[in-house]
Design a protein around this nucleic acid. Structure first.
Lengths: 346, 346
DNA sequence: CTGAAAGCGCTAACAC
DNA sequence: GTGTTAGCGCTTTCAG
């Protein structure tokens, strides 16, 4: 069964490739092609199951109708929701998505960009990793639209959409403080990313705001490279070393999940021994007793907004519009892990 | 900043596109190109950051070095692990992966195949959905290598690799029965997939084997289209209607997760009121007290095996080797949700 | 040892 | 209204 090309269709219908091309691209009436011939072409096309060769089209038009989605980790919870929305949105506009995961690895990220670069992909949606500044810069210079999500690269001027990390953490902290917690720990990752810095700022500034002194011992920053087991062990040790800590704030959901395990290992009860709150919601948080309070990122919003931003750049010739930097608000999801402290406690 | 092509490199080095192409493809010595010129070309290439246009290469060679991975649901737990392994394996062999999710929707799956079809993609890794038999058949006829994972399409003859669903469920059932459970429920999805049928067979046959009578009321088959909330509600009702049920077997991990919520809603305790076991492990199962016993699919194995199968088909001209149908064994992960029943119980 | 030239399948000026 | 033709950027046969 041979592949059938546009020429074959032309021969089969006694027309030329041009005519076939026009008909297929819906430019039949614009080009005033007779209805009879158009119908015939369509019929033949269907009959032989002809599909234009996307590669050839891409080479010719310079458009692939593919968007590259570069994320930290495929398979993560955040990613799952993101992908679904983005894919749906893309499809509406005739685009397809190619996914790449960087595993927060600079080299891998650079490799991906390089690979997709200058070709194959019309635009990019990127969850940034430090160290790819130059590469991203290069993409932009080559005229490829790029939109950042979830974070951005401070040095370079690219549209992005991300959650208001600072306000998100702040709202969580306010909640804890209002509920009577005073020794609030913070567990984060040792990565130099804007979003993490903002979360950190949310933590420290809210403490300051309420004149609570900040205890260095209550802060844990874990290496990103650590295995899950190591993370759990580190958090367990941290919990055991800080018995007076009455609440802990996890800066990411994967830390939160490991944190639950650590709390269990440490033999602590939520919320009687320790209150728990986590940035970025996770399926498990609704389920795990007594329910883990979290700061939910509006993933759908983010995806939706980012995609549309990219699409608008993709369709406009020279998008000279002002650089868009969009922040969306996180929402606070209260669950059982952060009740008001009884006056007696501590 | 213009894109630089092979012609530019040729001009810049005072050679021809041919020579540049040979050098770039490592065929320099084979073609006996002088070392001096090769070096010069390489240098120029690097200096100008020249990258061959993948689209043009693909059009010319008919190879894209891209593998299409069509899965049920991107973002699922099973998928996450799968993707990681497959991507790593593919990279080793110079292939890239394009992901598509079907959401168990026939039309979507067909669309995906159609889209990638005959072009753009050199081979396929597919998690099958019923109804795409013809489409897959067609792919094969067009000479595209296809390997199925996680299931297969009964009608058509394609290599696959999947877990031994029957034995997996059987081992779980044996465990329950050995531990004294007699009224074992089974919650599955109303989808006509081989893997689900095999799990079902594992349930019924093990019951028969042990001369336990099968109670229709203890079986729940849920529509795939149901929203998560509906699933939880259905399971909750089912639990409340079957008070004598002392153990429940969930046929998939997403059912298990919803099941946990339902058990909570029904006010039941694990394992004192009901024992729980689930096919396909999930992060949450290790964490959720008292730990949910599960049948773990060797996802890495599956991915690894499937990928290599596909790669071998991709590299061999006419792979006339016998159709490979590989089953891998599931492993039993015992946790706290299925303790031995005390003689007193029930 | 290196270059000219054909052509992968398609689109879009430009002819007629 | 429809066909001819020239490439998109690359690989590869065939000359030299």
């Amino acid at each position: 069964m041979k592949k059938i090309s546009i020429k074959d269709i032309a021969r089969l219908t006694g027309t030329s490739p041009t005519t076939v091309s026009f008909v297929l691209n819906g430019r039949a009436k614009e080009m005033r092609i007779s209805a009879a011939i158009a119908k015939k072409i369509l019929a033949t096309t269907k009959k032989y199951g002809y599909k234009p060769n996307a590669v050839a089209v891409s080479l010719r038009t310079g458009q692939s109708k593919i968007i590259g989605l570069i994320v930290e980790s495929i398979g993560g919870a955040f990613f799952g929701a993101l992908a679904r929305v983005i894919e749906a949105e893309a499809e509406k506009h005739g685009y397809r998505i190619v996914y790449c995961s960087t595993e927060n690895n600079v080299d891998k990220a650079r490799g991906m960009i390089d690979m997709l670069s200058h070709q194959l992909v019309d635009g990019y949606l990127i969850t940034p990793v430090n160290g790819i500044e130059k590469d991203v810069q290069e993409l932009v210079q080559h005229g490829k639209p790029v939109v950042m999500m979830d974070g951005y690269l401070p040095g370079i001027n690219i549209p992005y959409v991300l959650v208001d990390n600072y306000e998100g953490v702040k709202s969580g902290m306010e909640h804890l403080i209002a509920n009577g917690y005073k020794n609030i720990g913070f567990v984060s990752v040792d990565l130099d990313l804007v979003q993490l810095k903002e979360r950190w700022r949310g933590y420290t500034e809210t403490l300051k705001l309420h004149k609570l002194k900040q205890d260095k011992k209550l802060v844990l920053k874990l290496g990103y490279q650590l295995q899950k087991e190591e993370v759990i062990n580190a958090i367990t040790a941290y919990l055991l070393n800080n018995k007076k800590m009455d609440a802990v704030f996890f800066a990411t959901n994967y830390l939160g999940v490991s944190g639950l395990q650590a709390i269990k290992n440490a033999g602590l009860q939520i919320p009687s021994d320790i209150a728990v709150i986590c940035f970025d919601d996770h399926e498990i948080f609704g389920l795990y007793p007594p329910g883990i309070t979290s700061i939910r990122q509006p993933v759908e919003d983010i995806a939706h907004t980012a995609m549309n931003l990219l699409l608008s750049h993709l369709t406009k010739k020279e998008a000279a519009e002002p650089l868009q930097k969009i922040q969306v608000q996180a929402s606070f999801v209260q669950r059982g892990s952060t009740p008001a402290k009884t006056p007696v406690a501590q």
